[in-house]
Simulated assay, not measured.
Amino acid sequence: MMLFIGIQLIMIFMFLFFGWAIVKKKWYGLISNFNGRPEDEQQQLIKNGYPQRVGKLMFATALGMALLLPLSFTSFQYSLEVQFGFMMLFLLGGLIYLSKYEIKEKRKRSYIFSSLIAIGTIGFIVGLFFTGYQDFELKDYGDSFEITGMYGEVWDYANIRHVELLEEMPEVTWKENGFGLATLAKGHFKVMDYGSSLLFIHKDSQPYLFIETEKDKIFINSKNSNETKEWYEILSSKTK
């Protein structure tokens, strides 16, 4: 949790710095492609107030993120999604709005380009979160088992070294490659005392099934505690 809060604080200060540098110091070169424009276009943009409004957008984004930051200290499960969702929507919507301050000849193209970027970015993120929140299950195939969904695969029972049912999930210290969402963790994570592990975890849904194979360390559970226990019985009976 402290890692995510640290990342949010860094982003807030970053937006504040860029906003201050553009509005107060007039470092317009920080705006994408501003220095690459002809001098007359730069002057027209300044006359239209475009750079100043970009800086104010940075300030407003930082303020909104700062106001939402206290959610991280509450029991609200989706605080991270809300904060980063606000940042993306506010920035992308702001850039579309700022197209009205482009030079007249390029205004329409700017609207279209900004809108396409917004649609593509939002669509990609929504698709990513939808995929990440897809549930998983453990399936028995007689001589092997499969964990379904993203990051899942098939393991032979013969390669299992140890199976254990845990009442508490060990501390997860770092995400290597996966989804660390409000109610679910899926993918490759560092776990204290276990090292690099593959997680398929519904948070706060005890117990947790630990499976160690020749190559992988896996933590998995179901929202239904009885189903997790059934998985444990299946695997332990196959590895005796």
Rank of each mutant, 00 (worst) to 15 (best):
E153S: 14
F129T: 08
V126C: 10
K190E: 10
F200S: 00
A118K: 08
L165M: 10
L181G: 09
G142R: 09
I160H: 01
M169R: 03
Y141S: 14
F129G: 05
G152K: 02
K139Q: 14
S144M: 08
F130C: 11
E168L: 04
F113G: 11
T121H: 05
E167A: 04
L181R: 08
Q134P: 11
K203I: 07
I201L: 11
H202A: 09
V172A: 06
Y157P: 01
S114Q: 15
L184G: 05
Y157V: 01
F113K: 14
F179D: 01
F129R: 07
I119G: 06
G152V: 04
D156I: 02
T173F: 09
R161Q: 09
F200I: 06
L184F: 13
Y157R: 00
E167G: 09
L165R: 01
F124E: 04
E164W: 01
I147L: 13
L199N: 03
G187Q: 01
G120M: 12
L166C: 02
V172H: 02
L181F: 13
L138C: 09
G180C: 02
G152L: 07
H202G: 09
M150I: 14
G187I: 02
S197R: 04
F113H: 10
G127F: 02
I125T: 03
I125A: 06
Y157I: 00
L166H: 01
D140G: 07
Q134R: 15
F129A: 07
F145T: 08
G152S: 07
T183Y: 12
S197M: 07
Y133N: 14
E153R: 13
T121I: 13
D156P: 00
L116C: 13
I119N: 06
